[in-house]
């Protein structure tokens, strides 16, 4: 059972206080009606499901009820970091990951 540090309560709490809401950093298209069926399908149904580092959206359901992100390893279950939705530093790190992924394709 995970021990999760809630970044809002600023406390480590047991997993059964939380609820996982799936992959994090999924951006809703700004104008959904302008998307193609494929674009919309990608947004709605397809998730990365990686082996390794993964960012997930969780809610502290039996607590502050706030959503936040967990960056964790899907293989070892190690949690690297939990952070608030508006954490700017993580946005920068994430953009870097994405641009690297685009640059190197499947190599990463």
């Amino acid at each position: 059972m995970f021990l999760i540090h809630c970044p809002i309560c600023n406390e480590p709490r047991s997993e059964d206080e939380f609820h996982c809401a799936g992959e994090g950093h999924i951006q809703r298209p700004l104008d959904p009606m302008a998307t193609s069926d494929k674009e919309w399908g990608d947004y709605l149904f397809f998730r990365s499901n990686p082996r390794g580092t993964y960012r997930e959206l969780w809610q502290h359901t039996i607590g502050c009820r706030k959503y936040f992100y967990i960056k964790r390893n899907t293989e070892t279950y190690q949690i690297y970091k939990t952070y608030k939705l508006d954490d700017k530093s993580e946005r920068v790190a994430l953009d870097k990951e994405h641009s690297n992924k685009n640059k190197f394709g499947d190599l990463l």
Partner: peptide, 13 residues
């Protein structure tokens, strides 16, 4: 209830 919260917190804060 959870549905309302997630949309408010993540998409339309």
């Amino acid at each position: 209830y959870q549905w309302l919260e997630i949309w408010h917190q993540t998409e339309w804060p």
